[in-house]
């Protein structure tokens, strides 16, 4: 909107914003308005964080907890993408399928991933299936919606052109619709990855042996707010990195398509 900032100004303001954030936090912790036990200072949390990466808590170090969380996340996310994207594309292309799936889909959209916890335990147990179902239910909708939009709003002239050239249904899907929907699909995957990662904490409520959500619950159970906050930060950081990577993928695809 307004003019671009100079590099110096940008860095200055960013630093000021961050400093303000941490200053507010420190002040609040120091003021005693919230007891220290429940709002440790940033420094105390940083110390705990470092400690957790060195010394195991509830059996494992922070990195190991993250790793096992990551495995669950990956499985749920990949499953959602593998099922959701083709389904969305097909819904965009076949009108009857759209009519069949859309109402179901709209109804289930409001049901929280965590509401699936009891069924997840009932149907799949705790091995790996239960947690995956919960992550899947978080990650699935954006995959479908964006693939659907991508396929539905392909420029009509492309379709006309392909049709006059005598493309078959199959060719139409693989050679016209799919490539045209890629940007939308990738955007959907990015949202989906974010939601999958967020559903993880819910998923780890039903497995009690490892994972970052487990670490947080146990931290809470032993009255260690710093451990809980370290878990939050770890989740936040990894979520941020996942988003960053997918954003780069998105930018690369846009560039290749000459936009």
């Amino acid at each position: 909107m307004d003019e671009r900032l100079s590099r110096r100004e940008f860095i200055l303001l960013t630093a000021a914003g961050l400093a303000g954030f941490f200053a507010l936090w420190t002040l609040l912790a120091a003021s005693g308005l919230v007891p220290k036990l429940f709002l440790p200072s940033p420094l105390a949390v940083a110390e705990k964080f470092a400690d957790l990466t060195q010394n195991p808590f509830v059996g494992f170090t922070l990195q190991q907890h993250l790793l096992s969380s990551f495995g669950r996340f990956g499985a749920g996310f990949v499953l959602a993408a593998v099922i959701g994207v083709p389904l969305g594309l097909a819904m965009g292309w076949f009108r009857w399928l759209d009519g069949v799936v859309s109402p179901l889909f709209d109804a289930l959209r409001f049901v929280a991933p965590i509401a699936w916890v009891p069924f997840a335990a009932l149907w799949f147990g705790t091995g790996i299936g239960g947690p995956i179902l919960i992550i899947f239910s978080g990650a699935f909708p954006p995959c479908v919606i964006n693939a659907y939009r991508g396929a539905k709003y392909v420029e009509p002239r492309f379709i006309e052109a392909a049709r006059t050239l005598g493309a078959s249904h199959w060719q139409m899907i693989t050679e016209v619709l799919l490539p045209a929907s890629v940007p939308s699909i990738v955007a959907g995957l990015r949202i989906s990855a974010g939601l999958a990662w967020q559903s993880l904490v819910g998923a780890e409520l039903i497995v009690a042996s490892s994972g970052i959500g487990y670490l947080m619950v146990k931290g809470q159970g032993s009255i260690s707010t710093a451990t809980v906050m370290s878990g939050m930060i770890a989740i936040g950081l990894v979520g941020f990195v996942i988003d960053l990577l997918l954003r780069q993928l998105e930018a690369r695809i846009h560039r290749r398509r000459g936009r």
Partner: peptide
């Protein structure tokens, strides 16, 4: 520039 960093920190936390 001022608000985005703090927002980015808080955003990915479930």
């Amino acid at each position: 520039a001022l608000f985005n960093p703090a927002f980015l920190l808080v955003r990915p936390i479930p």
